[in-house]
């Protein structure tokens, strides 16, 4: 069971590199940008939360001194957080997939090597691509209903279609990523000893543990 992995290479491939390698890199840039937006949304939630407490405690304190001081609260705070939530909940999904970051059980996989292993990986990606495409369709319809019939949040009635549209967009980006990985594993099934391209490095449970440690050590050194 591991939520870790690694991308094969993060350096920009030269113009004459394998097309898969170049596609992987370019799509990875887009995924990185989306994950950055997700990161910014998390930062925004932190700032909003601190402001919410500050305004509440601050105005309560002010009322102790001057009873006429009006209580302040961010209008529609919950609605705004929920409006932003879709960004951190979904936008980075393809980025995480590129790094092999979604959880899976690796007991069986870890005990298999060579072509059989690549076949199993290929099957896993094919199923993932199938469900992702189904959900791109289904979540786009979910957006369309909000767009055509209307939908809004409970308290301050923010329109819901923009955040509902983020879901199929994020899943479509994931679908492309899965297609690239499908290509990557198909190559390996055909030529099991070829250099892996556009697939997460093979990571077993203890390799994942080692990676967790490497990350920690890096931070410790900096810290």
């Amino acid at each position: 069971m591991a939520g870790h992995g690694a991308a094969a290479d993060d350096k920009k491939p030269p113009r004459d590199a394998h097309p898969l390698l170049r596609a992987d890199w370019h799509w990875g840039r887009l995924e990185g940008a989306l994950n950055l937006i997700a990161a910014v949304s998390i930062f925004a939630i932190m700032v909003l939360g601190v402001l919410q407490i500050a305004s509440r405690v601050g105005s309560a304190g002010a009322r102790e001194l001057w009873p006429e001081f009006p209580p302040i609260a961010i209008h529609g705070y919950i609605d705004w957080i929920e409006f932003v939530a879709v960004l951190y909940a979904l936008l980075g999904i393809a980025y995480c997939q590129r790094l092999g970051g979604h959880i899976r059980m690796e007991i069986v996989l870890a005990s298999i090597r060579g072509r059989a292993r690549w076949l199993l990986e290929l099957l896993g990606i094919a199923l993932a691509l199938a469900i992702t495409l189904l959900l791109v369709h289904a979540t786009f319809e979910n957006f369309l209903r909000a767009w055509i019939n209307g939908d809004s949040s409970m308290d301050i009635r923010l329109p819901q279609w923009p955040s509902k549209l983020v879901v199929p967009v994020a899943l479509a980006v994931l679908a492309v990523r899965l297609a690239l990985q499908l290509w990557g594993y198909a190559r390996l099934v055909l030529w099991p000893t070829a250099l892996p391209m556009a697939v997460p490095l093979v990571v077993t449970a203890d390799e994942a543990a080692r990676q967790e440690i490497a990350e920690t050590e890096m931070r410790e050194r900096r810290g």
Binding site: I42, M46, G49, E82, V86, L135, A138, T139, N142
Partner: peptide, 23 residues
């Protein structure tokens, strides 16, 4: 069937209470 499944990703992510997780 697709509608019953397809409402889940949005509805279950967009939830104020869960916003504590990234924090």
């Amino acid at each position: 069937g697709l509608t019953a499944a397809g409402t889940v990703p949005y509805a279950k992510s967009v939830n104020y209470t869960l916003s504590v997780l990234p924090m």
